[in-house]
């Protein structure tokens, strides 16, 4: 049994896992966007045809991106085992900060100045959420009588 530490905010390790999850997510999204290009959305069939049209070399980027996205599942389950969903999800919004940078540098899209202002608000939001108390670990729900071994967070008392 690992040492139980008193915490009232998100552990740094989990925060870093969320960031890692997010970086991979950003990479996957970029690859999928690059790989998809512009596709015909007039019907579901044409959409699928586009996805499986392997004579288009770019579509491989899409599938690599999808592969990264799917592997990210394991990282995400690790995060969810240690935090509230309502904490982990908003913290994954650091991709809102990463994506515009990536869109500017790799896809050459234009980002309006007011959007950068919005990003500053998002940074503050992330700060507040990472400071909020993890509720389900402090008050386990009835169907969750105990925490598993190896979970080194979650003292129920302050």
């Amino acid at each position: 049994m690992e040492k139980i530490t008193k915490i009232n905010q998100l552990p740094v390790k989990i925060f870093l896992l969320i960031i890692a999850n997010d970086l991979l997510d950003t990479l996957a999204q970029l690859l999928m966007k690059k790989g998809l290009g512009l596709c015909d959305l007039s019907s579901v069939a044409s959409y699928f045809q586009h996805l499986f049209n392997f004579s288009n070399p770019h579509i491989f980027l899409f599938w690599i991106g999808l592969g990264i996205y799917l592997s990210n599942f394991f990282l995400w389950m690790k995060v969810l085992s240690n935090t509230d969903l309502s904490v982990a999800l908003p913290l994954a919004s650091s991709s809102y900060i990463l994506i515009p940078f990536a869109a500017v540098f790799f896809l050459h899209e234009f980002v309006k100045p007011i959007r950068w202002l919005g990003l500053v608000l998002i940074v503050f939001g992330i700060y507040f959420i990472s400071k909020s108390k993890p509720s389900d670990l402090l008050t386990p729900s009835p169907d969750l009588p105990c925490q598993g071994e190896g979970i080194n967070i979650g003292d129920t008392h302050e």
Binding site: S86, P90, S93, Y96, K112, I114, R115, L117, G118, L119, V120, L121, I122, F124, G125, I126, Y127, F128, I129, S130, K131, S132
Partner: peptide, 14 residues
């Protein structure tokens, strides 16, 4: 507050 700030930030940018 955090969630609202994030959403506000995103609405502002959108």
């Amino acid at each position: 507050i955090g969630t609202l700030l994030i959403t506000l930030g995103i609405i502002l940018t959108a």
